[in-house]
């Protein structure tokens, strides 16, 4: 399941939920490619929540989370960032990070 969220919606997320937050930019080719990768993953793991955040429109949030560039994927478990992946990654690396949250 992929949902686009903004800063306010980020604040309202269930803290305990294991999830991935991806920061992307509309001006970034690797981000566009990653959107197809994430769609594949969402099909493979429909129950896992993937949230996408526009890097350029949510600057305060990305500063607060220490996100320096795009795409960046943050993996959360019980309200804590467990790992992050920077740059375009292929499915196995992302699935491995998701499965590490279990």
């Amino acid at each position: 399941m992929i949902s686009e969220i903004n800063e306010q919606e980020y604040e309202a997320l269930d803290e305990k939920e294991a999830k991935m937050i991806e920061f992307y930019s509309k001006t970034c080719g690797p981000c566009k490619m990653l959107s197809f990768v994430l769609k594949d993953i969402a099909r493979q793991k429909p129950e896992f929540p993937i949230y996408i955040v526009d890097f350029d429109e949510n600057r305060e949030l990305k500063e607060r989370l220490g996100v320096k560039g795009f795409p960046t994927m943050l993996f959360y478990k019980e309200g804590r960032e467990v790992s992050r992946l920077e740059g375009l990654k292929q499915k196995p690396a992302i699935i491995s990070a998701i499965e590490a949250l279990a």
Binding site: K26, T27, C28, G29, K32, M33
Partner: peptide
């Protein structure tokens, strides 16, 4: 040559 942000494969 590609504009930045182009999806290319």
């Amino acid at each position: 040559k590609f504009e930045k942000g182009t999806l290319a494969m």
